[in-house]
Amino acid sequence: MTTTATANPPAGRSTRSPGGRAPRRRRQFLGKNPIGLLLSAPYLIFVIAVFAYPLVFAVYMAFHDYFFAAPGAQVDRPFVGLANFQEVFSDPAVIRSFGNVGIFLLINVPLTVVLSLVLATALNKAVRARTFLRVAYYVPYVTASVAVVGVWLFLFSGSGLVNQLLGPLAPKPSWLISPTWAMPTIALFVTWKQLGFYILLYLAALQSVSKELYEAASTDGAGAVRSFFSVTIPGVRPATVLVLLLSTVTGANLFTEPYLLTGGGGPNGASTSPVLLMYQKGIEQGHPGTASAIGIALVIGVLIIAFVQRKLAGGDES
């Protein structure tokens, strides 16, 4: 939107130095306000040091036999081609962790989209207690995972409140120590924790859905449910594409929750996530090459999912 906003040259500037050819040439090369580059330099250096270089470094590690050595020591780290990837994909624990994150995404992403859109729509029309409700919805989002994990451990423990209320319906073994229920419980936790943020995104998107469309729909005899499906859902499609993407990326990043809720991916690897394995293999066991290979595989997986989502949700206009 801004790239089209070109300004008129400040009046009187070019007339002041008719003989200054060198400054003009510099201006042509660096733009009208070269100081912009200077002001942005710290940020550009930051992006290169913290994003670009590590990204290249990660790819380098994944294709080399990289190991930790004393800083400054010259050691030979031979190129190993796809050996790290071969090792990763022949490891059943890695395959399982990708399956786990798949289960997580299948529960978390649709639940997030549906619940946040429904709650945002209801909140958008609410008259009373709007502020209270808005705050209530984003409190979990602004709280540290580590803090709320404590409560969930308490709520979902073997003799916790949830099982007390369910009585004989409580699963055995209990939620977080059951191979079947551990991952769904984590997915539910993350959905609950992040929902407030997505509600905010949908609230913003709902403001841009034209009121006239709702009026037209109601003149045509559409009820609230019908206009939700025919006006609201198409109207917030760009936001839906964004919510799908962000919740998928967040889900693939899963680490804190299995680390703490299920004591490091238990029971027996049923809730291990790829990032948890990257930590265990890369830092605890000292195989950063293997960990980077898992990371690259994970990112490629996320890119594929994001591409498919975009095709399905049709986000061309966003």
Partner: peptide
């Protein structure tokens, strides 16, 4: 620069975690 500011928001931290730790 603007494109970079948008792009870095979708670079997954998990991929950068090991190199950043080493660095």
């Amino acid at each position: 620069t603007f494109a970079l500011a948008l792009l870095v928001q979708v670079v997954p931290f998990q991929l950068l975690m090991i190199p950043l730790y080493v660095m």
